[in-house]
Design a protein around this nucleic acid. Structure first.
Lengths: 208, 208
DNA sequence: CTGGTATGAATGAATG
DNA sequence: CATTCATTCATACCAG
């Protein structure tokens, strides 16, 4: 009932658009706007900010969701639950079935894109690392705290090797604001002997 | 409990990386790997498979997405939760300011080709929002986090020139259902002044 | 409280 | 690479 004057608890967490904001967004959508450009998003969010806080990302998501949901028309309610008898219905499938197995055992995209793009000579490949990546420790979930800083995750000692190598091959370029780290795969330290590529370590010995 | 954490519907047809896999990938990314070669992808996936099923393509996509999203830095606000439901205790942002990031540094929107013809297809997104997050400074290895300039929300009222871009809104000729029509942006709520004409109103003259 | 539903947010999977 | 589509996950909220 309080459709007007915004939501109830403008708590925290996720954006909770006010009625006005939704109205504007809806109008725009109905007007035909579906995938606003960066500028549009900015302007829209600016406009919306008059009704309450909102970030550009919210606007972005709003349109994405709205568009996507209109297409599906909410019809795809899938999991109708219907968990009727616990017993049977062991599998669920209904379509996807074996899930990924079948999944076109398509060979990796290597046949197409890769064959073109970065599939060049391994030793020249360069990548830029923007200052830092969010990298959010992701998976916020508890983690056994394996404190394996250096990834002993890899069966082989591969991981940390990689990191070390990466550092060794990296060097800064263009000290602009961008602060990128160019990683060309040639050993900066030794100045020679390019290890194939970032070579996930020495285990290439094992698999190649 | 929670052993499975996060990912619930583990069915899925699409790859659902495990925490370990994500960690490895993230480490690699941090190490500077951005566009792994075919071989690298091959090896990475091979090793990741030790933590769960994964295909090369997944690794390929992961890097692509991760890199792409790093650009506009999809700020990840982790659960501030604390928004306990009922409580009705007049919550006021419940501490955790993370709920209101909102500091985004927009980069020159014109730096792209999108700045060209308006009647072109939508060149979307790429908000380039750079937000200061805890993780950012946490992961900023090189360089002592030089206080990212946190532009204030919005110049506020910069929205005036917003309307000038009305023509920008005109576009969208993507066949289909486009019911362009007048849109009024008057603040039903505030009922205040000039409704910040975002109005893409008469843009019908552009596309119809 | 509890479950269902609407929807914000995140991200895997493409496509050009 | 830049963008977009498709799913899924996580919440806010309301009904019962």
């Amino acid at each position: 009932m309080e459709a007007l004057s915004g939501r109830v608890g403008v708590k925290c967490g996720r954006w909770n658009p006010t009625a006005e904001q939704v109205k504007v967004l809806t109008e725009l959508f109905r007007a035909g706007l579906r995938t606003p450009s960066t500028e549009q998003i900015q302007r829209i969010s600016t406009h919306l900010s008059a009704f309450g806080k909102v970030e550009s990302r919210n606007v972005f998501y709003w349109f994405q969701n709205h568009k996507a949901r209109e297409r599906h028309h909410h019809k795809k309610r899938r999991r109708v639950a219907s968990c009727s008898p616990d017993s049977s219905s062991n599998e669920e499938e209904s379509g996807r079935a074996a899930a990924e197995p079948a999944d076109l055992v398509l060979q990796p995209p290597e046949s197409k894109r890769e064959a073109r793009g970065y599939n060049h000579h391994p030793r020249i490949m360069t990548c830029y690392v923007r200052e830092v990546t969010e990298q959010e420790e992701a998976t916020t979930w508890e983690r056994p705290t394996r404190e394996v800083e250096t990834l002993e995750l890899f069966p082989l000692k591969a991981a940390y090797d990689l990191e070390l190598e990466a550092d060794r091959f990296s060097r800064y370029v263009r000290g602009g604001e961008q602060q990128c780290r160019e990683i060309s795969f040639f050993d900066v330290a030794t100045g020679r002997d390019p290890p194939l590529e970032l070579r996930l370590c020495s285990f290439d010995r094992y698999l190649v």
